[in-house]
Design a protein around this nucleic acid. Structure first.
Lengths: 367, 367
DNA sequence: ACAGCCGTAGCAAGCGCTTTCTATGCGGTA
DNA sequence: TACCGCATAGAAAGCGCTTGCTACGGCTGT
């Protein structure tokens, strides 16, 4: 039924070993022989049996890219960029040079699925794995992840982190590319502060994610530095600060709906808010909708800012002030790292700068 | 180094066959034995060797989802939905029930890469393949695709088309879910027509894609039915119609940039245009930006409409009139079809309705 | 008490490929 | 001319798993 190596060998009147060598191209084969084999491959429309090949060679050409949400361009852009560096041009049959099959796996943000995919990739003896996006901070899960990644690395799988903080132990991975979420959050807040805002609402992402925490920390650092939170070190002062922080922060998932609902809640809690920072651009879109639905104008009544600078953000009306993350570049770099085409940064860790993009959605508060 | 089935068998004091059967659960094993094996698996932290297993069983648990552009939510939403139907919960080790590894492959819209991925999946003996999005109309490529899909189907891989027209021959696939792009294009144009628009610009997608052609055909059908194009059947009339069609249609990729540039071009060619239909919502965003940059207002000066109804479209200002495609539902259904969890529609072909969403970006023309 | 079964477990033959080791033939060199 | 070495091809031993078939008790039925 299906054509095998042996069939090709028979037709080319050589041994299976020779066919294998022609296909893999890592052993000298006379030009005339090679040609004969190639013709036989073509004639028979032969396609290598991947599992058999992986079994015998103890490696596969699978590269896994784990993302939290495939419907979110934030991940799509990184994954796409990584893939451009991984998938070779391909010749359609036989086995091409350094060609790898880059596949993206959607964890949906679930720790369990993250682990499951890692096991599945381990089972396939994947050549490399790229993990994108923030990690979940649950200690048990982190330990499980670290163990799993260590095992993968042990088995020869290259592990690259992209847009995710380095592992606590840090040794198991080829490289970690982390976004400067903290710095971005700080600069964004400083921008708002410099415009004169004082009551700033914060629509944060899910509590348990590192990304959420880092952006929020940057924000609070800036607020504290401006004497808005945390400067009063007396006992009551501290309490008041904490209350304020909590009152002006609402957590929720990274989606539009959450931005809408959280903004309504923020407006209820503190009608005097003059600016709202959203966990990311998608959330900012929802926040903007809520503000408009309340009959308020952006930025005259309330300023809005996002994070990530996704492609649609510049087209929002007014254009969204946000923090630009070089998603494509980071993804491409992760792809190269995974392929061993680029040497890892010193210590295996690189921080990727976040750039503030000031646009029309932020302006000085009215009063 | 790595632990194998035999190691587990030794530790559980059973034969490798028994371990295999416990893991696959398709053969009676005494409860006490099963338990002993499971404990050994756990103790040894055993992970099945995928390639070996696929080789022996002649199937794998890989399911490929091909998309044209992973950074585009249009595909992300379908792929994500399909994955929810495919990837089981997973138990972290051994092999779970009907668990499959859903992976998405980014073709970038390139026919060559599409074929390459199909070969790679064939090589891996994928359990199923889902192809999403419009096809390229080049006859040579279509023939190659049909041949490849037939071969995949032959080898037992289920092939499902999602948001893509059925194959010319049509036999090789489990099912084809096609969006009613033509109907959507027609209804959208009728809406504009009923508002009083007569000079309607059309920013189309890449010429060679079926999606582009179908949407455009729907548009032109509606125009012709209204006597705007193609009613004049004299020789000169025909020519004039064709000229008009061409003058008011600009092709380009499915991205924001293309929408921006094409709209500028349309405005130059025909300043009297009162409405612009974009190939999809992303393109519509670019078109809107161009219109605003020209100092025109939406919808007062020019109406804008998109296609797809991506999540951000409702948040555009003004909210975008568009044609809603049930991407999530279609993706989920494709996933179920690929898993054999749902019986294919009669004839293997289903057309999925497209619903007109009238919002703020379209209004009657001023004069 | 014996034949026949059913429920379990083991044996062993591959699945299709890679790769080490060995064989062969040829040209060049002493 | 005889020998060595290089370039190339083949033989064969697995890689780790699945599965058809066989084997073996103990139970049931007569």
């Amino acid at each position: 039924m299906t054509v095998t190596l042996a069939d090709v060998a028979a037709r080319a009147r050589v041994s299976p070993a020779t066919v294998s060598r022609v296909l893999n191209g890592n052993y000298p084969v006379a030009a005339s022989t090679r040609e004969r084999v190639l013709r036989a491959v073509d004639d028979l429309d032969y396609v290598l049996n991947g599992p058999a090949s992986s079994l015998a060679a103890a490696t596969s050409d699978l590269v896994g890219i784990l993302v939290n949400d495939i419907a979110d361009p934030f991940f799509g852009i990184m994954a796409g960029a990584a893939q451009t560096e991984i998938g070779g041009p391909g010749d359609g049959s036989g086995r091409a040079g350094g060609e790898k099959l880059a596949v993206v796996c959607n964890t949906g943000g679930s720790p369990a699925r993250e682990l499951t995919y890692l096991t599945l990739l381990q089972r396939q003896r994947a050549a490399a794995v790229i993990l994108t996006g923030g990690a979940v901070e649950d200690p048990a899960h982190q330990a499980a992840m670290a163990a799993k990644l260590a095992k993968l690395a042990d088995a020869g799988t290259r592990v690259v982190l992209c847009g995710r903080p380095p592992l606590p132990e840090g040794e198991a991975v080829v490289a970690a590319l982390a976004f400067d979420n903290r710095g971005g959050g700080r600069r964004l807040t400083e921008h708002l502060l410099s415009l004169g805002h004082r009551r700033i609402g914060y629509v944060a992402g899910p509590v348990e994610r590192t990304t959420t925490r880092h952006r929020l920390e940057g924000h609070r650092d800036a607020m504290a530095a401006a004497g808005l939170y945390g400067d009063d070190t007396t006992a009551e002062g501290r309490l008041a600060n904490a209350r304020d922080e909590n009152r002006l922060t609402v957590h929720g998932p990274y989606d539009r709906r959450s931005g809408y609902d959280a903004t309504l809640e923020l407006l209820r809690r503190e009608p005097e808010v003059t600016a709202i920072i959203a966990a990311n651009d998608t959330v900012a879109l929802g926040a903007s909708a809520a503000i408009r639905d309340r009959g308020l104008r952006i930025p005259e009544d309330i300023s809005v800012a996002g994070f990530d600078d996704l492609p649609f953000s510049v087209d929002a009306v007014p254009a969204l002030t946000t923090v630009r993350l070089p998603l494509f570049e980071a993804g491409a770099r992760a792809g190269r790292l995974a392929m061993g085409k680029e040497t890892p940064p010193p210590g295996g860790i690189a921080t990727i700068a976040a750039e503030l993009m000031v646009r029309g959605s932020t302006a000085p508060p009215r009063k």
